[in-house]
Design a protein around this nucleic acid. Structure first.
Lengths: 338, 338
DNA sequence: CTGAAAGCGCTTACAG
DNA sequence: CTGAAAGCGCTTACAG
């Protein structure tokens, strides 16, 4: 079965390829009668434009690229879902690449997407990324790019984020208001802005409520895993320090902590209150259910695509535009661990 | 900055475009000297072939499509990860679409991928899919397509699966061997092959060990959620029937059951043993940790791409090949809930 | 070893 | 209202 082309239709109808093309695209300068004939035949023959030819001609692929640090991650899965849903609605397809939290991979993948000529890029930085040349390079080539969740202040482009500092402040404040006075923090890696901001929000809350900041109550989770939460909790308990609250950088870490506390028969929240961050699927299912900060992953994906869509249109039409930072609200979800 | 093309290089070097093209691709019929000059200049100018033109010419996109019922799902996330990792290794990019367990969407998305001219398709059927015309249609057009995890016997193509029936048999057998005699089953929806097979494995194990099958101990989870596990457990307990074991179609359902049993202060595994299916991230973290069947998601993704890669090559070279069904091993992971 | 030519399927500025 | 023509950037069969 040969692929049907404009030429076939033109030959059958004994008109030119140009007219067929214009008829199908409803150009005003084609007679209604011709349009009708062309469209009907196209329908009958089940004509589908050759997208390779269309891409080539129009210099558009109607495809965007997405680079994400880790696909197997409740929050990021939700972001992905939001992005593909919104993209599909607008006729765009999404190519997904995983940077594995590696700067080298991220750089390489961005190169792949550019050489594939995606119409735009959505990305969340890897924890490893310290240098932004690869990103500025894309921006300089007038390829729209929007960052989400893990961003960097020094990159000048549109961003969709939450206010990590404020959310962490609220989380810590919630512990303080529930009566905690000795609050530990299992923070994220030193580099990404999110974990810095969450740490700063924690410190700020202590300061606001006149609680002395004690650096020995802060542990750094480089991998942000269950095991780190589990092990650091043991270490924390071993120090024999007074601790009555714990703010963990993510639910997974908090759940690790809860597992260890349960094991040690330390009562939650009576002896130690625990709060996480992100609201993972499982957080309401564990015992005790985890108080946490709700982070709108699906919405973030949706908004990120929407912004990208706007910028793709602007660039296509060579219209000037300003970068925007869109901040999404978070929520305190109180459950039984505090 | 104008895009560098073969023509630019040809003009600067005062040779033909054809020779430049061949030199870059190391055709044997170009002199070493010319090759060297061309390659050096291409390097200096940072020449990148226009992938739109290449796709158009070669009729290949080096892109595959992936249709998955649900992105936010621990098992499927792992499959996605395996697929993109393997695809990237072979120079392929992956477009991901989510069918949302809807046959209509699945059909539409398959159409999108075909019109986008992906080189191949990987998919897992939606629970809703009863009719396979859309898939046979793709296969008939000589577009390679491999199914994984959720497949159908009636579709004639390559598949990457686990033996759900056997795994369910082993899960149920494990309960029986731990002393359970009254085993409930929270099964999946009536349609997809997986949940039918898991149900059949359960029945077969009962039969093998001379335990009478009691249909009133079987509940159907249409959505396969935490809530269903939670609610059906309440219903099950309400019936006052003797039950000492539960095999749930997925970990999420099992975790819902555990949450309810904990709430009712029913001891696990002393009073009721619980086993799940899939080994989600959280299953080792809950209390008690969940015994389950390990299902190799990442490997499944990897194998599915590998098979697709083979078939893409065969079809490109117009070589005949046979469809293959690749069965991956599962494992019984014993934890504290049994 | 090199190059002229055709062509992939479409779009669009232009002429009539 | 219709069509001839050019062109997007590349590849490859063919001639020399």
């Amino acid at each position: 079965m040969r692929e049907v082309t404009l030429k076939h239709i033109a030959e059958i109808l004994e008109i030119s390829v140009a007219t067929v093309s214009k008829a199908l695209k409803d150009y005003p300068d084609v007679s209604a009668k011709t349009k009708k004939r062309v469209k009907e035949l196209a329908e009958t023959l089940n004509y589908k434009p050759n997208s390779f030819a269309v891409n080539f001609r129009t210099r558009e692929s109607k495809t965007i690229g997405l680079i994400i640090p880790e696909v197997v991650h409740h929050f990021f899965s939700n972001v992905i879902k939001g992005i593909i849903a919104q993209a599909e609605k607008k006729g765009y397809l999404v190519i997904i690449l995983q940077s594995n939290e590696s700067y080298q991979l991220e750089k390489k993948q961005l190169g792949l997407l550019v050489s594939k000529r995606v119409d735009g890029v959505l990305m969340s930085l890897s924890n490893d990324t310290v240098d932004y040349k690869h990103i500025n390079n894309v921006l300089d080539r007038d390829i729209p790019l929007v960052l989400f969740d893990k961003t960097a202040k020094l990159i000048n482009c549109s961003k969709v984020i939450i206010d990590d500092r404020k959310a962490a402040f609220i989380a810590t404040e919630h512990l303080i208001r529930s009566g905690c006075k000795h609050i530990a923090h299992f923070r994220g890696p030193l580099l990404p802005l999110n974990s810095i901001d969450r740490f700063l929000g924690y410190k700020k809350a202590l300061e606001t409520y006149d609680i002395k900041y004690d650096p020995s109550l802060v542990y750094t989770c480089n991998e942000v895993t269950f095991e780190e939460g589990y092990n650091f909790t043991q270490e924390l308990i071993n120090t024999q320090k007074r601790v009555d609250g714990l703010f963990a950088v993510s639910d997974l870490v908090a759940i690790g902590a809860i597992a260890k506390l349960n094991e040690l028969k330390i009562k939650i929240p009576e002896q130690i209150s625990v709060i996480g961050f992100s609201d993972w699927l499982m957080s309401s299912a564990i015992t005790p259910s985890l108080t946490t900060i709700g982070q709108p992953g699906y919405l973030m994906g949706k908004k990120a695509f929407k912004r990208l869509f706007v910028e793709m249109a602007k660039i296509r039409k060579k219209q000037p535009f300003k970068y925007k930072t869109i901040e999404l609200p978070t929520s305190l979800i109180v459950r039984n661990s505090t």
